[in-house]
Write a protein that binds this DNA or RNA. Sequence first.
DNA 1: TTGTAGGCGTTATCAT
DNA 2: ATGATAACGCCTACAA
Lengths: 336, 336
Amino acid sequence: MRGKITIYDIAKKLNITAATVSRALNNNPKISEATRKKVLAMANEMHYEQNKLALALKSGKSNTVGVVVPFIDRNFFSSIIRGIEEELYPKGYHVIICQSQEDEKKELKNFNALLNAQIDGLMVSVSKNTKNFDHFDHVLQKKVPIIFFDRKVDMKGVSTVTLDDFQAGYEATKHLIVNGSKRIAHLSGDWALDIYQRRMAGYKQALVDHNIKCPKGYVVKGQSDIHAGKKAVKKLMKLNPRPDAIFSASDFAALGAIQQLKEMGLRIPEDVKVVGFSNEPFTKFMELPITTVDQSPMKMGKMAAEVFLEQVKNTKVLLEKSVVIEPKLKIRKSSL
Amino acid sequence: MRGKITIYDIAKKLNITAATVSRALNNNPKISEATRKKVLAMANEMHYEQNKLALALKSGKSNTVGVVVPFIDRNFFSSIIRGIEEELYPKGYHVIICQSQEDEKKELKNFNALLNAQIDGLMVSVSKNTKNFDHFDHVLQKKVPIIFFDRKVDMKGVSTVTLDDFQAGYEATKHLIVNGSKRIAHLSGDWALDIYQRRMAGYKQALVDHNIKCPKGYVVKGQSDIHAGKKAVKKLMKLNPRPDAIFSASDFAALGAIQQLKEMGLRIPEDVKVVGFSNEPFTKFMELPITTVDQSPMKMGKMAAEVFLEQVKNTKVLLEKSVVIEPKLKIRKSSL
DNA sequence: TTGTAGGCGTTATCAT
DNA sequence: ATGATAACGCCTACAA
């Protein structure tokens, strides 16, 4: 029913054997130029197309990688996937997408399904609710290489591609300091994710390096959404002294913060400067464009793909590469 | 090297044959309850996992669908893919993602690669530069069902999931009329895509139905980006009489229009009302939230997946289903 | 240079 | 109820 024609069909037409056809098609040197040409011509004429499935079964390589992200429709993740796809497609790899939906159980199921599909590699950004990491070991046991991007698990035998979140936090904060802010608050995210811890660490280090205090209550932990940003600002502005700048570890929280500040009659950036994180598309489009940290997600995806390709080239040893991407501060009006 | 344990391994341990193991694992009735339990227990103990590749080769079904979109990192498309994935994953299907990058040749290559991978179905939103449609026929010849979403090709034997773009254009325009606009301009998109033609048709019909004229120059064709929106407004505002409202077939063009209007000192919505299209995330976040048409992309993805599932259930006939999704006007400040 | 044969892991069709 | 065997499409020793 499907892509009917096989190497056997070609062989029959040419009165040769399937093995010979295979050799011709695979540029195997052990074949005469004459028959190769005949085979190639016939294959073309019959519209032969190789069945990758059979090849995969035979070779143990499926030429497919699995990508697991919390949600595919977040700009950050879809940009990463774009990077992965564009890097891997020319090399003959397919990209299978799965969503963990920030759920450990779904993540585990994704892994098993992908393992069953005989993927050649797994690229994953860990769900934030994942506490148990056995399924990662399980993948490694099957000799399937893992490449983490952005959110990683500390374990042996894996590679990672991450942003230098410490540096990002540091630079964002330093930028505020340099522009005159003296009392800088920080909206942090879910501490289950170390990216938020590192961003905060960068923030704190910048304060220390510039002899600026971080009064009690200046660091607010919350979700990375608009509502959390508003809530945080309500708290922060009751403080005495109140902050004159906010570094948010998320653009959405930064947006909420801005909305709340405006509602309170505070001007941005005059009264309070704001810096967000992720360079979400909307930050650029606002009437008041928001300063933010660009994570180069497409590049992250491309790097992850490159590390994978390097890994499959040398299947003997498990690579343990750690690629760290430099953050890029996008300075806009909200902080000037 | 890979998922070593096969049904043969289980068979050996149990001194039975692989066929029996297979039967036990597949709930085949021709087997005793006793052996079934033994097999299941052993399979569990040995952490057996079915090799989908072998199954796929044997059965001719890969349990994989290919999805081809212009770019994965556009909110509209990634939301659709999310819908597809969430609908198909529970049914045991994998989703392979490809990007055509609005390029006919890449689209063709994507198709061939997916065909080689023995996909069970193809879901595609056509590249806007595709003029030749042979590769679609080619897919159909291989008995692989095609489901178009959003951008379709008119051909036999395929199913489609689209937005009612005419209705969307009609409602958006009517909304402006009802709110007092008398001179409504339209920013259209690339006419190679029929979605833009239909949006415009809806716009024109609404004008006719309400006895409103469409003066020359009131319809501006351009790209669907910020720059095009600005450019169009510069032209439009030179017209006499100048428009008091703009219905843009794209949110980005609408944004550009708004930026340009402001630059010209015109107030929105007082002087000019604006309606966009797609419900891009940023439209909601602006200080001046933009009225726009929501296309329910996640639902579109889910519907496409459902049509596919229906198709594979009945492999005898090629379904020719046409699902039309109702647009939802999101009324915000830019048009009130 | 080409053919033969076996195997990748599974299921389905015969027998038994 | 279970076993033996062939087949899915391809590749690759090994033999000729």
